[in-house]
Design a binder for these strands. Structure first.
Lengths: 211, 211
DNA sequence: CCTACCGATCGGTAGG
DNA sequence: CCTACCGATCGGTAGG
């Protein structure tokens, strides 16, 4: 996407000449859906144009490049996930709250973000580092994963998670389960984001076998 | 791939003239690794040729098409997974074995297959139905998932899994966790397939919080 | 917002 | 006549 100009005190957005057209946000949402349905590489700008009812060239009136669409989508997911973890951790900062409670809150908040930004998060989880943009997204994602792993280690250290499972293995299984939600969860189904967050947190921490 | 001729009682494999060359299996393994690293669509036959030190044309001496490579890889994964479930279920067929035990065995066996056929299973789990080959693979995968879901429903029905979690949700979380292993598990790491299978089965059924 | 194009590269095949 | 492979190029389509 073009850099959105900083919010100067602009008057009302000038109605552009020509057809009403599509704004950047519409193009981006449609692109993310196509990228998820067919894969980024298998999606051509022509596919996107057809989906929007535009010509291929008109797409480039709204966006600078195909990769800029990818970059904007990945930023949306990463910004939302980072903010969610900040929120979940700050909520109990300095308190007498144990690590397990902080972990529960962080898992639940991650699931809610995944549900709320499902298309962007889905795309993020499929990135393989095929370009500079993808590699930077992977680096940001690793930083997030490391914060979560630190939290899991703290919970093991305080004795509230099993000590017969390696903490890093526990982290991977925990957030592997969360991430696997993008493969089947649909927000228009019977489960809303909150119910999903509660169910996932409970199953992954307490297990499927009744206690 | 070309159909491999049925195993007739051949003598020793005749040393072929010409350069030692690469056989179909080598080409397939290399292709799967590239497909996983870069994505199927982003991998060109030229990439594969370069990796093998061959010309692009020589690839087509060994395989009929790029898609035939994909098809062979997906069949490897699907055949192995189907066989594993047959094995895990037949092992206790008709016995007095409860559904939870059969489920434990099936989860463990699925993890072992995932570890043993990691590249092919990784590729399978990334298929999005972009072609006839991919759609048929997805259909086979759905049939496997349905067998697993039936097993989970039986375990809930007999009372050995929590009844406050929907059985289909439980299935999705269970096998979502298993499938997420392809994102990080490496067979040359500290965990072998058996140890991974034990750890995953235990965490996913008993939970991370100590009992 | 479109038609008309570009340099390059795609999967696959030719003859030898 | 074979297997194994090559340099060159096919008709079409990619992102821009």
């Amino acid at each position: 996407m073009r850099p959105v100009p900083a919010a100067t005190p602009e008057p009302a957005p000038k109605p552009r000449r020509g057809r009403p057209g599509h704004d950047q946000a519409t193009v981006l949402r449609t692109a993310i859906d196509l990228f998820n349905a067919k894969g980024y590489d298998a999606t051509s700008i022509a596919d996107l144009a057809k989906e929007l009812g535009l010509s291929k060239s008109s797409i480039f009136h709204h966006v600078d490049s195909k990769e800029a669409l990818l970059s904007a989508a990945l930023d949306e997911a990463l910004d939302a996930l980072s903010a969610a973890i900040d929120r979940a951790l700050d909520e109990h900062a300095g308190d007498e709250v144990d690590a397990l409670t902080r972990l529960r809150g962080t898992v639940a908040e991650s699931v809610r973000i995944l549900a709320a930004h499902l298309p962007a998060v889905t795309l993020l989880l499929r990135v393989r580092g095929n370009s500079e943009v993808e590699q930077q997204a992977l680096a940001r994602r690793r930083r997030i994963d490391e914060r979560l792993a630190t939290l899991v280690r703290a919970a093991v250290a305080e004795g509230s998670l099993r000590d017969d499972v390696d903490p890093d293995l526990a982290s991977r299984l925990l957030f592997g389960t969360v991430n696997s939600l993008v493969e089947w969860y649909r927000p228009d189904g019977p489960l809303d984001g909150d119910a999903l967050a509660r169910a996932v947190t409970s199953v992954v921490l307490d297990g499927l076998v009744p206690r």
